[in-house]
Design a protein around this nucleic acid. Sequence first.
DNA 1: CCATTAGTTCCAAAGTTTTAAAACTACTTA
DNA 2: TAAGTAGTTTTAAAACTTTGGAACTAATGG
Lengths: 98, 98
Amino acid sequence: MKDDFDKKAVRVFKALGDPNRYSILKLLIEKGELSCADFDGKTTLSKPAMSHHYRILENAALIDVRKEGLHYYMKANIETLEKFVPSFIETHPSKKNR
Amino acid sequence: MKDDFDKKAVRVFKALGDPNRYSILKLLIEKGELSCADFDGKTTLSKPAMSHHYRILENAALIDVRKEGLHYYMKANIETLEKFVPSFIETHPSKKNR
DNA sequence: CCATTAGTTCCAAAGTTTTAAAACTACTTA
DNA sequence: TAAGTAGTTTTAAAACTTTGGAACTAATGG
């Protein structure tokens, strides 16, 4: 577990081992880039709770976040997915982000 | 998250999102079938703690456990790995292409 | 039988994660 | 400049996970 690859892998798995974060990422893969507001109808969680989950996904390099005006736009990081959880892309195969 | 596949995936990721369990599985992939005693020198954890982690890996279908005499023999479940975390197999048995 | 071995199960403590309310910040628009 | 929007950060509580000691169970060997 000293290996950097392994540490990153554990962080990725931990991030995905929560149903809320799993669903967030799944939706991002399906829809492309979304803002926090786009998740409003799709969850019962409060904004702070969602914010917490975005942060964990970002720290695992599973999503990239970009601020533009009032909005934070998020999208799945395909590189990390391909490296650690390629099955995630294959099984949710509308990854037509460009 | 109604999907059975997704529920299993989350369970697999949660199981692997812990460094102890990640290391256990990694070792099982490298060495094949091992008994609990084979982990004795390789961890600082108590037997109850290890037992707890084996159970979580088993519940995620990441390992198969077989009792023979006094020993519980464990091995990685390749089917589950291929389905949910194929990268885990690819990167570990021969970690040449990192 | 009885002792030993290789574990598991039960329990409570310690540690971590998840959550929402409240307070805050940054940007936009009137 | 004031008001509103779209979030973040802080805080604290509740829920969950991890851990080891003690007690237990099941198989083996005298």
